[in-house]
């Protein structure tokens, strides 16, 4: 599986990479939405994990941009924004799931597995 991790926090990118990387998947990372679009075009990942609050381009805008290029993209939002409206808006825009920070390795693994099975 090819996974793109998008988050402006290096700590979170490393944390997700550590959890998922153990399964032997191919992983790339990006620290903002602009970089994520560039890496997406080159890498064509199976799954994207996407933060929302990021510099240069926020995660919801990046979801729009990715889906305009690849309508089959599978994107899991991982964000601290806990209001229900944000999760609903993310799904309305085409995200496949929403994982709230702080997350545990178990909840992350469950979400990624569910997306992979889909």
């Amino acid at each position: 599986m090819r996974l793109l991790i998008v988050d402006d926090s290096n700590l979170i990118r490393r944390s997700i990479q550590r959890e998922i990387g153990m399964e032997g998947h191919e992983i790339r990372t990006a620290s903002d939405g602009v970089e994520a679009l560039r890496v997406y075009e080159e890498f064509r990942p199976d799954i994207v994990t996407m933060d929302i609050t990021m510099p240069k381009m926020d995660g919801l805008t990046c979801v729009d941009e990715i889906l305009s290029r690849d309508e089959n993209a599978r994107i899991l939002i991982i964000s601290a924004l806990a209001d229900k409206g944000t999760a609903v808006e993310a799904v309305r825009r085409g995200a496949h799931g929403f994982l709230l920070k702080p997350f545990t390795s178990e909840t992350l693994a469950t979400e990624i597995t569910e997306m992979f099975v889909e």
Binding site: T53, S79, L81, A82, T86, L100
Partner: peptide
């Protein structure tokens, strides 16, 4: 990340118009 998570989680009660920066 701690500041971001605590501030973002506050939107559960303060609503989506409690807007946070990076």
């Amino acid at each position: 990340e701690i500041a971001n998570t605590i501030s973002g989680n506050a939107r559960e009660f303060l609503g989506p118009n409690f807007m946070i920066s990076v």
